[in-house]
């Protein structure tokens, strides 16, 4: 085997085979794989990640103590960043309608609360949601590309996406082909994201890496870089169908990818941890992380979202506890 390694853009870190799988360059060795596009080859090498160091850093975020005004402000921000989600086989128009109402009226007995950022549904439910939300400030996000597995032909994924957009989706949450990624076909993943981005038109594209299947933080980082360079407006941890989902370590790794891209290009990319964030405390720790890694510019639902279904009520309970001084019961908050 030849030892020639193609020159990637030595933009900011030297080339390392740890970061870029050699199989990406399989064509060099006479294998019949599609040739990576120049855009793909221009993605800078990803830095390696030491997982224990990431764990220590994340533990540090969790020692931040958020009290009083900062807590109240933080909790309201969290509510306003939620993509209220239902992604089940048993979803019905009735369920989606209820959720859309709740999205705009989180807890009417306590005035002054923001709405959530968006509702997140399957493509078949986008039309229902659009009817309910009309021109509300709450956005509609639709999963697509044969969510959650992504195991469908390209034509189906494109059609899936176009359908959701035509039904009124403001945002598309696509899944990447994890199998291809793990097989080293990173250029395939790149091309697929780029194609979906085109199909999105004006809708913003969130790219779900499904980090629970990527196995290492090095892979999470590489997948983040690929997604960002292929045109993602947001990168998102998980479908919510696979554990572990949005751990702080994964989110931190993805935030660092966003940070590096921003430092290099000045372009902001959004972040959406999804799955597993069900308590106010964890959500606030995520905000601490966003503030300290990316800065306050990212602390709005334009750039940061939580993909969650049960988080909203926990935040509401915390807000009411802070207001009244009484510990709250879930029975006082509507479930849907």
């Amino acid at each position: 085997m030849g030892s020639t390694i193609p020159t990637v853009n030595f933009d900011w870190i030297s080339f390392s085979t740890e970061c870029v799988s050699l199989t990406e360059f399989g064509f060099f060795y006479g294998m019949s794989k599609p040739k990576p596009s120049p855009q793909f080859l221009s993605i800078p090498a990803s830095p390696s990640i030491d997982k224990v160091g990431v764990e220590e850093r994340c533990a540090r975020f969790q020692t931040r103590s958020i009290k009083n005004d900062a807590k109240m402000q933080g909790l309201k921000m969290v509510l306003n960043m939620i993509d209220l989600t239902t992604l089940e086989g048993k979803d019905t128009p009735g369920k989606v309608r209820q959720m859309c109402y709740k999205a705009q009226h989180l807890h009417d007995s306590y005035p002054g609360l923001p709405t959530v950022a968006a509702v997140c549904v399957y493509p078949s439910m986008v039309g229902i949601a659009r009817k309910e939300l009309k021109d509300s400030i709450v956005k509609i996000a639709s999963v697509s590309t044969a969510f959650p597995s992504g195991q469908a032909p390209m034509s189906v994924k494109l059609e899936d996406t176009r359908f959701a957009v035509s039904e009124g989706a403001d945002e598309i949450d696509m899944v990447i082909s994890r199998g291809k990624f793990l097989a080293g076909e990173h250029n395939f993943v790149f091309d697929e994201i780029a194609a979906i981005k085109e199909a999105c038109g004006k809708a913003r594209l969130k790219v779900i890496l499904e980090t629970g299947e990527l196995s290492t933080l090095d892979n999470v980082r590489r997948a983040s870089d690929i997604a960002i360079h292929a045109g993602a407006d947001f990168i998102k941890t998980s479908t919510g169908k696979i554990q572990p989902a949005a751990t702080m370590q994964v989110t931190y790794t993805m935030l660092m990818a966003i940070r590096d891209h921003y430092d290099r290009t000045g372009i902001m990319i959004g972040m959406k941890p999804a799955g597993g964030i069900s308590t106010s405390k964890l959500a606030l720790h995520n905000l601490v992380m966003v503030k300290e890694v990316l800065g306050e510019k990212w602390l709005s639902n334009e750039w940061f979202r939580f993909g969650a279904s049960s988080l909203a009520n926990d935040v509401l309970m915390q807000i009411m506890k802070t207001e009244t001084g009484l510990y709250q019961s879930p029975e006082y908050f509507s479930m849907d």
């Binding site: 030491d50 997982k51 224990v52 160091g53 629970g212 196995s215 933080l217 572990p244 751990t247 370590q249 994964v250």
Partner: peptide
Amino acid sequence: HPIENIGGATSSY
């Protein structure tokens, strides 16, 4: 030196 996944082979992030 750090050790990844000290909690056992099945532990993950």
